[in-house]
């Protein structure tokens, strides 16, 4: 389990980006996690709770967006979604497929407050 390391990576990148804008707070951090990684959501939230106090992201919401496994068939070019098991082209039945999505570990966006933009509690 390396969610602590993952979350500290998320926080470093988010706080850096927020600080560059002179943000006063981070309201939300949105990440994309592939369903074929070993990341456990609860462990992410737990680590987030533990690591955010005292940072710009204190009180922020962590939004985890799941990206399903998706592969492209090498034989016929069909692209299709799948789980961990039985990755088989839905077009031609081939097993020779290249994964195009499902292993993401990505910070998508952050929502911040700027000094001259008080927090409305709403994200436009």
């Amino acid at each position: 389990m390396h969610e602590m390391g993952i979350v500290s990576g998320i926080l470093t990148a988010s706080v850096d980006a927020a600080a560059r804008q002179n943000a006063t707070a981070i309201n939300e951090i949105r990440i994309r996690v592939g369903e074929l990684t070993e990341i456990v959501d609860d462990a992410l939230y737990f680590a987030f709770e533990a690591l955010t106090p005292g940072t710009l992201a204190e009180g922020a919401t962590l939004v985890v967006e799941h990206v399903p496994g998706r592969s492209k068939c090498v034989e016929c070019g069909t692209t299709f979604n799948h789980g961990r098991f039985d990755v088989e082209c839905v077009g031609c039945g081939s097993y020779f497929c290249e994964m195009v999505e499902g292993r993401e570990l990505e910070i998508e966006s952050i929502d911040i407050d700027l000094p001259d933009e008080p927090d409305t509690g709403e994200t436009p």
């Binding site: 990576g9 990148a13 804008q21 990505e106 910070i107 998508e108 966006s109 952050i110 929502d111 700027l114």
Partner: peptide, 13 residues
């Protein structure tokens, strides 16, 4: 304000 980062979390690694 929303900022797009689109950055791998394990960027450094």
């Amino acid at each position: 304000m929303k900022i797009d980062l689109s950055k791998p979390i394990l960027d450094r690694n």
